[in-house]
Amino acid sequence: MAFDKQVHYELAANSVIDGNQERAVELTQEALDNGITAKEFLDNGLISGMDVVGARFRDGDMFLPEVLLAARAMKAGMELLKPELSKTNAKSAGKVVIGTVNGDLHDVGKNIVIYMLEGAGFTVIDLGVNVAMETFISEVKQHKPDILGLSAFLTTTMPAMEKVIESLQENQLRKQVKIIVGGAPVTECFANEIGADAFAEDAGTAVIVCKKMTKNG
């Protein structure tokens, strides 16, 4: 039977939606073997599947553990595509620098956001936890990201977000980067108060907001 690209994309998208890691890897390899470019397969197969997952999560039809499995399947497929993607300099959906602010050691929520952003085709630079204000500034200078993501899990560490934003302004960097904030105690009202561009209450929303900010949404 002739290889049908559209059917293959659909099967790949479904493997991601189902969180079927083995199937996603198998279909990715088959796509490469049949001459589909990595970028084409990523966009039409794997990312297309993650888009469905993101929409279902937002609508309450999928839940976090299912989303994590979907992202895992997506990333497993993507690992096979990486060598070709880097050879062809395929354009990513955008570049995001992200970290948990100074004094805060919570990283699971941030890591889930990273997982989903990568699943949506973003290039993500993870600065980890307990990130000093100076590190955020130097990393923004170095990587020139489209978006800076700041995470905090405690009311006592939330003020560090504001300090990072103030420091970006002092260093004339604020206008070159959009800022998204999130974390358990963070609210939209707080995001507005400290001058962030956006707030996301969960990982699914973070992806949607980042897409909008990079005009991919």
């Binding site: 553990p65 994590l68 499995l69 992202a71 895992r72 990333k75 990283d107 699971v108 990273i114």
Partner: peptide, 16 residues
């Protein structure tokens, strides 16, 4: 262990 799983790209198991 949670940190290790998340950093080794198994955020699914790490998150759960």
């Amino acid at each position: 262990k949670i940190e290790e799983l998340c950093n080794s790209d198994d955020v699914a198991l790490g998150g759960i």
